[in-house]
């Protein structure tokens, strides 16, 4: 059996040759690891790679190619993001060819000045239950056994969120890398009226992060794009997970798993008591 990487390349090449898609969004090798790439020529398909370093969600790039037919490589969480985006009318299912790759978890990035060495599976991947995208046109199975997942640490140990927020630089990397932050003007970046000033007063970081968390509640698919791109490693996924739990307890709603189930804030059932 061929490795997922060769299968991926073969598929991308045939899609581009048949002109089924204009463009394939995938990952390619770079000097520092892996980065997104946009392939429009069949010959270039050889550049595609697939490994546990492919952590940035590619779904956020889809909004840049609304006019084109795009093939996109998705992990389980990214597939969930696509489902949510379709529900929010942000994506045309017909013009997107979804190549689902079975994901066994991604590695935490080893960033500049990190004192820890060695690869470690990301925290959010330990909790993940959806390893294959729920929506797909083609499935590529993984040939390796799942990365060793350490048993999830007890969620009980609370984090000191205020001191974590204090470290924030407000670089907006969390917003920009998120598949769901498709607003053309971000409410926490807007000028007038400014909820959070551009030159942020440290105390405004509280509003910044809480507002973002409220906007992500019930939508976040815990792909970890925000967390892995954060320069000061604020575990944002854990915060959003907490709010998703609230949605699950109250409405039994898990974002991105079922295309038919409408997001609870959008539905009103007659006779429903608050």
């Amino acid at each position: 059996m061929s490795s997922p990487e060769t299968e991926l390349r073969r598929l991308a090449r045939s899609l581009l040759e048949k002109k089924a898609v204009d463009l394939v969004i995938g990952y390619e090798k770079s000097e520092a690891g892996v980065r997104p790439c946009f392939i429009s020529e069949p010959n270039e398909a050889e550049r595609l790679v697939w490994n546990p370093d492919c952590r940035l969600s590619l779904v956020r790039y889809l909004r840049g190619f609304k006019e084109k037919r795009v093939g996109i490589i998705v992990k389980g969480c990214d597939g969930r993001a696509i489902v949510e985006l379709i529900k929010e009318n942000q994506l045309d299912r017909r013009s997107t060819f979804i190549i689902a790759v079975e994901c066994n978890g991604v590695y935490k990035p080893v960033k500049y000045g990190s004192s820890k060495l060695g690869r470690q599976i990301a925290e959010y991947c330990e909790k993940c239950e959806v390893r294959i995208s729920p929506i797909r046109d083609h499935l590529i199975k993984s040939d390796v056994k799942a990365l060793e997942r350490p048993s999830p640490k007890n969620d009980g140990e609370p984090l000191d969120w205020l001191s974590l927020f204090r470290k924030c630089l407000r670089c907006m990397a969390c917003v920009r890398s998120c598949p769901f932050c498709y607003c053309t003007e971000c409410s926490i970046e807007g000028f007038k009226p400014a909820l959070v000033h551009k030159l942020v007063d440290p105390v405004e970081l509280f509003t910044f992060h809480l507002t973002r968390a409220l906007h992500m509640a019930g939508r976040c698919v815990e792909c970890g794009a925000c967390e892995s791109s954060c320069p000061v490693e604020i575990p944002l996924t854990r915060l959003y997970h907490e709010l998703n739990e609230w949605f699950r307890e109250k409405y039994g709603y898990v974002p991105g798993v079922n295309l038919e189930q409408a997001p609870p804030p959008l539905v009103f059932k007659e006779g429903e008591k608050p």
Binding site: R35, F38, M172, A173, L199, S229
Partner: peptide, 21 residues
């Protein structure tokens, strides 16, 4: 195409000195 327009590169750079008032 790749750039996601976060401002990480400038904020982490030891030399980027552009400012805003």
């Amino acid at each position: 195409q790749r750039c996601i327009e976060c401002s990480l590169c400038s904020f982490a750079c030891p030399l980027c000195y552009c400012f805003e008032t």
